[in-house]
Write a protein that binds this DNA or RNA. Sequence first.
DNA 1: GCTCCATTCTTACGGCGTAAGTTTCTGCTA
DNA 2: TAGCAGAAACTTACGCCGTAAGAATGGAGC
Lengths: 217, 217
Amino acid sequence: MVAVRRVGAKAGLSREQVFDAALDFVDAHGLPALSMRKLGAALGVEAMTLYNYVPNKDALLDGLVDRVMETAFADLDSPGASWVPWLRSFAHALRQALLAHPGVLPLAGTRPVNSPDALRMSERWLAGMRAGGVPLGRAMDVVNVVATFTIGHTLAEAGRTPGHEGTEPNLDDRADELDPAEFPNLTEVIATRAGLDFDSRFTEAIDILLAGYAALP
Amino acid sequence: MVAVRRVGAKAGLSREQVFDAALDFVDAHGLPALSMRKLGAALGVEAMTLYNYVPNKDALLDGLVDRVMETAFADLDSPGASWVPWLRSFAHALRQALLAHPGVLPLAGTRPVNSPDALRMSERWLAGMRAGGVPLGRAMDVVNVVATFTIGHTLAEAGRTPGHEGTEPNLDDRADELDPAEFPNLTEVIATRAGLDFDSRFTEAIDILLAGYAALP
DNA sequence: GCTCCATTCTTACGGCGTAAGTTTCTGCTA
DNA sequence: TAGCAGAAACTTACGCCGTAAGAATGGAGC
């Protein structure tokens, strides 16, 4: 319920509430549907009012990415000596955080995360991994590889562009049109679902990566 | 030079030319700047004329992704028995194709590629890898892992959102603001550039992945 | 010369981000 | 208690956007 309020009266908004509402809106209606006017309406406020809390729409989107990224780190402690299980946890936590807000996923790939919180986080795991015996450059590499793979793989998993649901047929939807004579292998993939399990594929790839980096001299 | 032409006269356009112009435009001005009006102007035509060649803007964007993806496969033959070097070539070719058109990169992550050409391509490498002794599901997994990692990593490499150049500071730009006392490790990263070489990081990660998959029972 | 049709242009609608200016309320000071 | 300063919200307006609908134009076949 939106409270009735007269011009000039405080709506009692806060930066936090604006981001919360934006995340809810994107989760509910998809990223393309998010506009300042509609977000304002969802908060019972005119569009321009939002500019008291956010300099422009881009900053709002950046904030959404930050917010989702933070939840991935929320329950993680420092890597310490055993950086392999720590990175494994990080990868799976990041994937879960992204899947929980698929609307924000396309932004996660394109927007650099440089908020003060993110920098503090980076500093923390860099220190932890060095303490665990990983050279600085190696630590940067392995964490970035894990993060970028997780984002790329989860982008593909979330599939069609959020907000475009139903407009872009994916492979499954086209199973019928696929001529088994021309595409015997693809037909078999769809029939047996071999190689279509994102969950186990992700787990396997992360383990391969971590084992490979752990084995480097 | 745009030829002078009267209303109703054919502009002699083709679907190909529209996509070519769109790709040029995005490369030159960034994805956010692409609009039907401006693309029309670049072709010496009104916006609505483009709808004779493309059903809507979304289809135009899908076509751009297809086009870039195809160039990654263009010089690749079938995997055959030695699928590891083939996949390595594929990964590097894909990365180069994406880096050549960074404006299209954000789309590559979000738009499923299901054009007939893409399906034929998939069928081809699936057949090749099976002939090389890779089980069907395994082939799907390793190719998808390589592709999604490549997209994720290249997204990060291309960095700031194309079209937003200069509006989003990245880590390097903030080197000055970084307090060495609070962020000793990040400061060292920037100073020594340890772990900031995308090229060698990508090569290393791909090799780790391929070696790992090759070693699976 | 005339008709038909493909191609292009024109006009229009509703929505977008946001700059600029206006109105209203709250809380402090006198 | 009166007055006022500042904060917060609203209103208006501008130039964009994607695209639906329809009018205008040119060339091809008779």
